[in-house]
């Protein structure tokens, strides 16, 4: 199967944009080819009869790992904010958010 059929170049470009990765055109070509090879590898699974196999959501045989609803120590605000590029009035200051909604 060819690279183009496994994954479209446009898909790679879109996903890299969503992940805020500034890929050049050459890098997108390269990544598309690499991802296609990986998908080829995964496609081997298609050859198996898996209808009766329960999907595995975790490799660990664990479920229901909880903590009790009890307060624990918090971090020191001044220490944390001292590591931020900018802080104002006990809060992190970040560049203005454009084109998105207020939360």
């Amino acid at each position: 199967m060819s690279d183009d059929e496994r994954i479209a170049r446009e898909t790679v470009a879109k996903v890299s944009r969503l992940a805020r990765l500034a890929l050049t055109d050459d890098e997108i070509d390269e990544t598309t080819a690499q991802l296609a090879k990986m998908l080829d590898h995964f496609a081997d699974i298609d050859a198996l009869e898996l209808a009766d196999v329960e999907p595995m959501t975790q490799p660990y045989p664990l479920r229901n790992v909880f903590r009790d609803d009890v307060e624990r120590a918090v971090l020191d605000r001044s220490e944390v904010l001292a590591q931020a590029p900018k802080a104002v009035d006990g809060r992190f200051e970040v560049p203005p958010i454009l084109g998105l909604e207020e939360s």
Binding site: R91, F92, L98
Partner: peptide
């Protein structure tokens, strides 16, 4: 830095 706490036109955002 903007008007009325809305996003459009604000100069920066503060996060809590």
């Amino acid at each position: 830095g903007g008007s009325g706490g809305r996003i459009h036109g604000s100069a920066s955002s503060l996060i809590d």
